[in-house]
Design a protein around this nucleic acid. Structure first.
Lengths: 197, 197
DNA sequence: TAATGGTTATGATTTGAATCATAACCTGCC
DNA sequence: GGCAGGTTATGATTCAAATCATAACCATTA
């Protein structure tokens, strides 16, 4: 989102984290702007039984936990490193000053929030449809179209079936069976378990 | 969102609409900023069978269809007047100039986008839970807490059971039965069919 | 190399929300 | 008033995804 040099110039601090490290927790107060430099971060809700719902998978260059910076409410979900990661963070007040002085960056954030909201609109209507095949099929199309969670070279979906299940509220067995069905229908290719579309 | 006088000063135009009038359609290009003055507007996705999924119910003073203004993608859902309504609209370019010249309004929009995104985070994790009672119970709490879709004086939920169903992806019979269960448990009050919480 | 844990895979069974059907009730309107 | 359409209400039945069980496969690492 924001150029790393700019973040450093404004006092941003690097942080190296191992896999499965909690960065912040749902319900906590957000005092920092977070941006992922390398690795990956999952942004999840964890229910009473410990089951995770995957809200967003954060890829390098993306920010996360930005909502509290603007609306001053607590974090809506928990951020956990998915693999070893490097993040950079900036104090809330500094971040707000930064975008105030750089309107073009503020507009970039409006765009980001719109895109994230758009994705939520999309996935919600799909979940409401209660049609696993339609949901997964259009979800994968969305990833392809937006170049998210997909290898730009070979179109391999970077999410596991478990992660797709955690993102759609389906069970992993249902996702496996549905993806297999989509392969039979020729809508995608499975090679050694990997999904290409 | 934006003061009506300000909108008028910037060339905003009033528009009076009857009930069930489509304001814009999912997939169309967004060239205007829309704000509801009076009445109500539902922002929905309509699937192949004509069933509506209710993304947001817009109340007077709120804006809608703001995503394309920032990310230049088509509308994510269709806006339809729910009852006779008055809206005010402003050209996209004018709107962008307005918030550019008034950073405090731009920040108000960042806050709005964050709040809407937060609501989507919330409702998605609830839908993924596949527990109608928990979903509806916490949804009503959310409305109470944010003072949305609720009468501020008497705490009457302004949504019909059908609308709650359209918002959660459940069926109306399930919503009716679940709300009745919540009443039995003492979590809410039903009087002449109206829900108070 | 062997052990471990996560992922993919598949069949059998269960379950709870969807669906279908029917009716009472309320509200707006001719 | 009386009609129409939407809302609330309730019971019976169906069905598809969840659940349970089991196993093969693969990558990581001790």
């Amino acid at each position: 989102m924001i150029d790393v040099d700019t973040l450093l110039a404004w006092g941003g601090a690097f942080k190296k984290l191992p896999a499965n490290e909690v960065i912040f927790r749902e319900g906590a107060v957000g005092q920092f702007y977070y941006q992922l430099v390398s690795g990956s971060v999952r942004w999840v809700n964890i229910n009473e039984e410990g089951k995770e719902f995957l809200q967003v998978m954060i890829e390098p260059g993306e920010c996360f936990g930005e909502m509290p910076l603007f609306d001053e409410e607590p974090f809506a979900a928990t951020a956990i490193t998915n693999e070893a990661a490097v993040i950079i963070r900036l104090h809330r007040v500094t971040f707000l000053q930064l975008i105030k002085e750089n309107p073009e960056i503020h507009f970039a954030f409006s765009k980001l929030l719109s895109q994230r909201l758009r994705f939520k609109f999309f996935i919600l209507k799909e979940m409401a449809n209660h049609n696993p095949e339609h949901s997964i099929s259009t979800l994968l199309s969305y990833f392809k179209q937006t170049q998210k969670n997909i290898c730009s070279k070979c179109n391999r979906i970077k999410l596991t079936r478990q992660q797709i299940a955690d993102m759609t509220g389906l069970r992993v067995e249902t996702v496996i069976r549905t993806i297999k069905n989509l392969q039979v229908k020729g809508q995608l290719v499975i090679e050694k378990g990997k999904v290409y579309c």
